[in-house]
């Protein structure tokens, strides 16, 4: 009896430390993007007029659509955790599947957005770009860097959630053991958090 209680106790600690480790990783992610936000802020105050002009090129509708897509996907992944805690296995799988579809929608939007800009020769190193004022080159450089790094996180988050979905389906993640799902959800929320700041900074403030 004493032994089993002891095991229960140490397992409890494991779950907490596993989550703590994820949070520590998320902190490093915050500073990774934070560095870019600081560069953006300083460059924006230095080249205010150029940034204003360049930001007009961005499509607010696509940006807003992707904001809504990520917010809804954040909710579905949070709900999948509720589902697994309440033993609703199929619902949990379904909700993660919807999250993955929304991640796909986000990436397709991004593809059209970047594709349009590249067709206008607005990409780092193009001949058109070289003729632009220094501040506009800076804006587009930061735009591609920040949204590109963010899109990379969307892809990684998608892969992570696919693994989570497969483990729920095989029963490795269940009502008792769902640390990986919690951490996958935390990662996905981080992707959402970063976009919440990217959207107003790049698309709205012109």
């Amino acid at each position: 009896m004493t032994t089993s209680e002891h095991i229960e106790h140490s397992e409890h600690i494991d779950s907490d430390t596993g989550k703590l480790g994820m949070w520590l990783f998320l902190f490093t992610e915050l500073f990774l993007f934070g560095g870019l936000f600081i560069v953006y802020a300083v460059m924006r105050s230095k080249y205010a007029a150029d940034f204003h002009h360049a930001a007009l090129e961005l499509n607010v509708l696509i940006g807003a659509t992707n904001t809504v897509v990520l917010l809804v996907s954040s909710m579905t992944v949070a709900m999948s955790l509720t589902a697994i805690q309440q033993k609703q296995k199929n619902l949990a799988i379904g909700l993660i599947f919807i999250t993955l579809i929304l991640a796909g929608v986000f990436m397709v939007n991004k593809y059209f957005e970047w594709g349009h800009k590249i067709s206008l020769h607005l990409y780092p190193g193009s001949e058109v770009m070289k003729t632009l004022p220094h501040g506009e080159i800076m804006f587009f450089g930061l735009y591609y860097m920040m949204t590109g790094l963010h899109a990379l996180h969307v892809i990684i988050g998608g892969i992570l959630l696919t693994i989570v979905m497969m483990r729920i389906s095989s029963g490795k993640i269940n009502q008792e053991h769902y640390l990986l799902q919690e951490n996958g959800a935390l990662y996905w929320h981080l992707v959402d958090l970063i976009w919440i700041f990217l959207f107003p900074l790049l698309y709205l403030i012109t």
Partner: peptide, 14 residues
């Protein structure tokens, strides 16, 4: 790895 006494957020809250 067992998750204990975790709060369950309701669907309504989400």
């Amino acid at each position: 790895m067992k998750n204990h006494d975790n709060h369950i957020s309701s669907y309504m809250l989400n």
